[in-house]
Design a protein around this nucleic acid. Structure first.
Length: 766
DNA sequence: GTACTCTCAGTTTTT
DNA sequence: CTGAGAGTAC
């Protein structure tokens, strides 16, 4: 970790008489933000005001004026995509060439590869942690657990500690632990009663055990990458480490500052204490990751943390027409406690926002499809069109419709390549090869392909390992020396261990793609899929081959695994023209000529769950999400909602989102609305007599099944018979109507407050 | 230990 | 409606 940082480059005189090409075309505020190099700078920038440009130009400027070497600048983004775009833009700026993010490698003379501390919070923290892993009891080749591993590990721990995993879903529990990590809290900083009765009040204890176990298997989860680094940098015993980074990083740049959580904030603050040269760019109105621990407060505290900080506002929008900006502004104006910005544009008024109410999800997809076909006739490009949904499941109806119409589309941010079963299995083989203590990897593949090692054997091994505080691999090594295991099992395990040791011995002197292929062959894993007769098997074999061949672009197996865990995005193989379908969260930072915003219904958007769990705060975050959605549009925004939507296989009636109400009338074109918009606004809804999805339809599409699922009636324990359509009374939610029955669970439409699923024992006929 | 059947809970949003 | 997990039968 010693580089030339102590011999910093001499600051060269910057000639003000000629403006270098990369600074041309910036407005006054942008230029101020780029050229204020020393001290703390907070750039409050609304949507479409060119904040990424500011950040990258600033980076280029630092290099051009020889203030710092690339290795002396810490540039942090939230997504790999943003990091990559920043790389491209910096090299383009340095060339003085026009910035074209769509062409991946501008012939730049600048080597934009390693040596740069430019990346996501996680990848940068991981890179740091590898150098100091020993300070938190890990070795530098630690594995990075994916969310699925996390859950499996915690579940094991819960079961051992006698906690009912049915009552307390491990997934929800790990979520809680993640939030602690987001707040920078290690187990000893979490109070005994911090989580209420979660996991029978034992969640803090489980957190402690979870962390111990991770150390035993030499692994980290995502949250640990930052948490461990904070622990290290905060510890006075490691003063030299912190000082080294202070010397190293002369300038710190942070994108999307409004989305930093406490851990990220603490990490940044520790590092920035050195030079105090930190520039953060953010928009409080676009803070949409509160559920992931993001604290808008970080942006508000900036001036306190860095006294004398300069605040620069960017309000000129270069993306959208004024109608779009006004509509977004009208919605966001309903939030309290904003820093306050008013966006304006020179792009003229443009078209109005269209609002359209439709019968059900299918009709909505049909409508969007037709609109897109019309745009196509007007020579719009599909690449300039996006459908932005609130939740993942909404994508399906659009996919089906677009397939039918033959419209090319792509779901951005859907299931990732490396989340597929065969890829995860293969990675588990690689992981266990590189890191023998990676229990979760070993557990995943110990009986895949089938080796007659069942859960019973694995339990025995785990029990032994836990008792001794050692990993599975070590437990197997121990137990195969004794007679505790049945001879057949023992033999199998010894063979497996031998294989793995042989693979490990090859790591250093075999090209890693070759080694990977060898592991997949010798383990029998590849064979397993080749012999498999199911229709998806050939695809899986293909994926595995692709995985192996794709490894060549990485320097080593270790580097490959790191990228898989932290960097690799869905493979962007498809090119050409396509419509983008994605969630609103996934759309942040992007822009499209035309944006479709379906599903603006109470309960779905704003999400009922967010409102239940976080009240007004949650609602305001949803509203910011609406703001993000609308401001993605350059020319056209199409909002739609439906009267009836299918969820969990049954029909849910809905009313238009309150956000529809918040749109000013004069900005809205409701002519495509089929008359529903006027009657559809929620203030008119109840009296309008609009009846979404007749019950008959719900029955027809959901025929009673002989298995009792989706039945039309059920006999409750006290003898009451409930049937579909019955009016019921619930102590808490009041009166409602049964629209579906699933065993003893009733799906109810309540007169006040949407739909809920309740047990029949909690309601009475009314 | 495996293959089949049945029950049940779940859909936010992601590095 | 789906997918995971438990339970049952071999």
């Amino acid at each position: 970790m010693h580089d030339s940082s102590s011999q910093a480059p001499v600051v060269s005189a910057y000639d003000n008489s000629t403006t270098p090409p990369y600074l041309q075309g910036l407005n006054e505020q942008q230029r101020d933000a780029v050229e204020t190099l020393d001290g703390a700078v907070l750039v409050l920038a609304g949507a479409g005001t060119g904040k990424t440009r500011v950040l990258t130009t600033r980076l280029a400027h630092l290099l051009q004026t020889a203030r710092a070497y690339p290795s002396q600048i810490l540039a942090v983004t939230f997504t790999n995509k943003a990091a990559q775009e920043m790389r491209h833009r910096v090299s383009a700026a340095l060339d003085g060439a026009p910035v074209d993010p769509s062409s991946p490698s501008q012939g730049s003379g600048y080597d934009v590869t390693s040596g740069w501390w430019l990346g996501t919070f996680h990848s940068l923290a991981a890179r740091m942690l590898r150098r100091h892993a020993d300070l938190v009891g890990l070795s530098s080749n630690f594995s990075i657990l994916d969310p699925d591993d996390q859950v499996r590990l915690l579940k094991q721990i819960m079961e051992v500690n006698g906690i009912d995993v049915k009552k307390w879903a491990p997934k929800a529990m790990i979520n809680f632990i993640d939030r602690w990590k987001d707040r920078g809290l290690t187990p000893d900083q979490v109070g005994e009663n911090e989580a209420g009765d979660m996991a029978d009040g034992k969640l803090p204890m489980l957190y402690k055990i979870y962390q111990q176990r991770m150390r035993a298997i030499n692994a980290c989860d995502f949250g640990d990458l930052l948490l461990h680094m904070i622990t290290i940098l905060k510890d006075p015993a490691n003063k030299n480490v912190l000082e080294d980074y202070h010397r190293r990083f002369r300038y710190i740049l942070v994108d999307e500052y409004q989305d930093t959580n406490v851990a990220q904030y603490l990490w940044l603050r520790l590092l920035a204490q050195g030079s105090q040269n930190i520039c953060c760019v953010g928009d409080d109105d676009q803070s949409i990751y509160g559920w992931r621990g993001a604290e808008v407060g970080n942006i508000l505290k900036f001036e306190q943390d860095f006294p004398g900080a300069k605040i620069i506002r960017l309000e000129q929008n270069y993306r959208s027409t004024n109608n779009i900006l006004k509509a977004a502004g009208a919605i966001i104006a309903n939030n309290e406690g904003r820093l306050g910005k008013e966006l304006w544009s020179e792009a003229g008024d443009g078209e109005k926002i269209t609002v359209c109410g439709l019968w059900d999800g299918g009709a909505e997809a049909r409508w969007v499809g037709e609109e897109i076909e019309q745009l196509q006739h007007k020579q719009w490009r599909l690449n300039d069109i996006a459908v932005l949904v609130r939740t993942g499941f909404q994508t399906r109806e659009f996919e089906e419709r677009f397939i039918k119409l033959g419209l090319p589309y792509k779901v951005i941010g859907g299931p990732r390549f490396y989340e597929r079963m065969e890829i995860r299995d293969a990675l588990a083989y690689f992981r266990i090869t590189m890191q023998p203590n990676d229990d979760l990897a070993l557990e995943r593949i110990i009986n895949t392909p089938k080796r007659a090692i069942g859960p019973a054997t694995v339990q025995t091994l785990y029990a032994y390992g836990r008792a001794k505080g050692i990993s599975l691999t070590q437990a197997i090594m121990d137990l195969t020396q004794t007679d505790e295991l049945r001879p057949k099992v023992k033999g199998t395990l010894m063979k497996l261990m031998d294989d793995m040791n042989r693979w490990r011995s090859l790591v250093d002197n075999t090209p890693h793609p070759e080694l990977a292929a060898l592991i997949l062959e010798e383990s029998g894993y590849m064979q397993m899929w080749k012999e498999n007769k199911t229709p998806e098997a050939p695809g899986r074999v293909e994926n595995l081959k692709e995985l192996v061949s794709g490894m060549g672009t990485f320097e080593s197996m270790a580097e490959f695994l790191e990228h898989i865990a932290l960097v690799l995005e869905n493979q962007d193989t498809s090119s050409g023209e396509f419509i983008s379908i994605m969630t609103l969260h996934g759309a942040k930072g992007l822009e499209f000529d035309a944006v479709f915003l379906p599903g603006w219904e109470e309960g779905l958007f704003p999400s009922q769950r967010t409102m239940d769990e976080n009240g007004v705060k949650g609602l305001e975050e949803e509203r910011r999400l609406a703001y993000v959605g609308i401001t993605r549009a350059k020319k056209r925004a199409h909002i739609s909602y439906v009267g009836s939507r299918r969820m969990y296989g049954s029909w849910i009636n809905s009313v238009p989102s309150r956000f529809v109400d918040e749109l000013p009338d004069d900005l809205v074109d409701a002519s495509a609305d089929n008359g529903l918009y006027q009657s559809g606004r929620s203030s008119h809804w109840d009296s309008s007599g609009f009846k979404p999805a007749p019950k008959k339809q719900a029955h027809d599409r959901n025929p009673p099944s002989s298995k009792g699922y989706g039945a039309t009636r059920v006999k409750s324990d006290d003898g009451t018979i409930f049937a579909r359509g019955d009016r019921i009374f619930h102590d808490k939610f009041g009166y409602g109507e049964i629209f579906n029955i699933d065993g003893h669970k009733l799906d109810i439409n309540f007169e006040h407050g949407g739909h809920k699923r309740v047990m029949d024992s909690f309601v009475e006929k009314g």
